[in-house]
């Protein structure tokens, strides 16, 4: 495992190196050396935990996607805040969401997006990775939730990852 000096996860290595420079406040010789060691060691040690490397076909669409998620977080936070302050009883529902995405990394990003936008939490993925269980705080119709997620988040991810 340690006999090769290679970087099995190049992007992870770059991220680790940059974050280490940020953490050490100023860039010096010591922090660069330590950053290089960590950027090599951590991917080696965690190799077995990573799913297959995702094939990103359109990575330049990522910033636009993140921006949309950020806007949705703000908008949906206000909706949830109004529900909490209004004092009425919410209408929660467990939605079984049929996944079209197949790559584990893409499913993780979709589940995290769903959890970050207030009003929906992704609770579990079925063992065959075909169904995502989503708890929705306040919805009158399950199909509306599924359609909204499919349209806003899964379509762009499908285009990015296939």
């Amino acid at each position: 495992m340690f006999d090769r000096l290679n970087f099995p996860q190049p992007w992870l290595s770059v991220t680790l190196f940059v974050v280490w420079q940020f953490l050490s406040n100023d860039i010096s010789g010591a922090s660069v050396v330590m950053g290089l060691i960590l950027a090599w060691l951590i991917p080696q040690l965690t190799q077995g935990f990573w799913p297959e490397r995702p094939t990103l076909s359109r990575p330049w669409r990522m910033p636009g996607y993140l921006l949309r998620v950020l806007v949705d977080i703000v908008v949906a936070s206000i909706t949830v805040a109004r529900l909490i302050l209004s004092g009425r009883t919410p209408k929660p529902v467990f939605v079984s969401y049929p996944l079209e995405l197949e790559q584990p990394m893409a499913i993780t990003i979709l589940a995290s997006t769903i959890s970050l936008t207030p009003g929906t939490v992704s609770a579990d993925v079925s063992d065959d990775q075909r169904i995502l269980l989503i708890h929705t705080l306040d919805a009158s119709n399950e199909q509306d939730v599924i359609d909204a997620i499919k349209q806003r988040y899964e379509k762009p991810l499908l285009e990015m990852f296939q």
Binding site: V74, A76, S77, P92, S115, L116, T117, P118, G119, V121
Partner: peptide, 14 residues
């Protein structure tokens, strides 16, 4: 519990 999960995890993060 499940409805409570919505309040803090998101509103607090924002």
């Amino acid at each position: 519990f499940y409805t409570r999960l919505h309040g803090p995890t998101k509103a607090t993060t924002l």
